[in-house]
């Protein structure tokens, strides 16, 4: 908490050797690209200025190693994409880092603070704030209430202050102003008094991101920010994410859409079967044989889900389409319907 807050609009002081090159670069994107240009393109590569460093993070379910990350670093101020086939363990890794799931082993530091074993709400307070694959708009709260909820260190959230409005009136007012600014920026200001439940899927994604920004995070972690978003909104969402980076915030996101990854990310980390198999700039990484193997050697990638679901095992016996085909169809259908495939996943046990 003592680390300096990186507020919107504030640039980040880069201290690395590549400063010279970076300083001459025209846009923030080019600046970051220059900083990352010298980073080795191998799993677990060291970054010039990592905000997040994780070691030996493992999580197994039964006998399956869902996550087995030996070492990874996330560059400060960059947009890093985490990609990989279904069941690669991306969301599980997100859950572990943010305290929503407990690892079997591993430790990680965020901005110099050890966060292993720290509960989710303290992770968020440390400045690492996430969104969810299935948007968690708080339906029966209004849009502005959703935003207000995000503000940190609210005096009126303490039970002993709650009854005495004068104690928190002023802070509440400034939080509302901040929320209104963000709503305007995300073009949600017209929806201000509406229940969040009445928003469209894309608007909910925007609201969730805006709400996360109310906490003044140092790093924002977006789990599939484009899933279920109307294509018309995609471009503006991408723009918002790039703006965050341009203002100095670190962004880590999970995504399936390769076009989007190519378009906005500065660095790409590829996971398969729980391990990190490749790293590199977006243009380079897709040429990596390990990545091609991970995506096209589909069997391995799907094995986790396959074993999880006797349905698929049964299907194989009953000569329906191959497991992969069924799987793909199922995933697509469910995604379209917004069904939570793994309802227990985010629950604390």
């Amino acid at each position: 908490m003592s680390a300096p807050d990186i507020n919107l609009g504030k640039g980040h002081p880069v201290t690395d050797a590549s400063v010279a090159t970076a300083a001459t670069a025209a846009t923030p994107k080019e600046r970051i690209a220059a900083i990352l240009a010298n980073v080795e393109q191998v799993p677990g590569a060291a970054k010039p200025d990592p905000i997040l460093i994780a070691n030996n993070v493992t999580r197994s379910f039964g006998g399956l190693h869902a996550v087995d990350v030996e070492h990874v670093q996330i560059q400060r101020g960059a947009i890093t994409a985490l990609i990989g086939p279904n069941g690669a363990g991306k969301t599980t890794f997100f859950n572990l880092l943010t305290g929503f799931d407990a690892p079997n082993s591993g430790d990680w530091t965020f901005d110099g603070v050890d966060l292993a074993g720290v509960p989710a709400h303290k992770v968020a307070r440390a400045g690492m704030v996430r969104t969810f694959q299935l948007t968690k708009a708080l339906s029966l709260l209004t849009v502005i209430e959703n935003m207000q909820l995000g503000a940190k260190n609210q005096l009126g959230e303490k039970l002993r202050n709650a009854l005495f409005k004068p104690l928190w009136r002023a802070q509440e007012k400034s939080n509302i102003d901040k929320a209104d600014d963000l709503l305007t920026r995300f073009k949600l200001d017209a929806k201000r008094p509406d229940f969040a439940g009445s928003l469209s899927g894309g608007q909910r994604k925007l609201l969730e991101m805006a709400r996360a920004l109310m906490t003044d995070p140092k790093m924002i972690m977006l789990d599939e920010p484009m899933a279920g978003v109307n294509p018309a909104l995609t471009q503006s969402l991408l723009g918002h994410i790039e703006d965050l980076r341009d203002e100095g915030m670190t962004v880590l996101f999970v995504e399936h859409d390769m076009d989007m990854v190519q378009e906005i990310s500065d660095w790409v980390i590829v996971m398969a079967q729980g391990k990190i198999v490749a790293e590199g700039p977006p243009t380079e990484v897709m040429k990596n044989p390990a990545v091609i193997e991970a995506y096209l050697g589909g069997h391995h990638g799907d094995s986790l889900l396959e074993e999880e679901n006797p349905v698929l095992a049964m299907l194989e016996n009953d000569e329906l389409p191959s497991a992969e085909e069924a799987q793909a169809a199922v995933e697509a259908e469910l995604e379209a319907e917004g069904v939570d495939l793994h309802p227990d996943e985010n629950k604390e046990s």
Binding site: T98, A120, H121, V129, K152
Partner: peptide
């Protein structure tokens, strides 16, 4: 979970 993710 959403509320937890906001640091509460």
């Amino acid at each position: 979970d959403a509320v937890r993710a906001l640091g509460k």
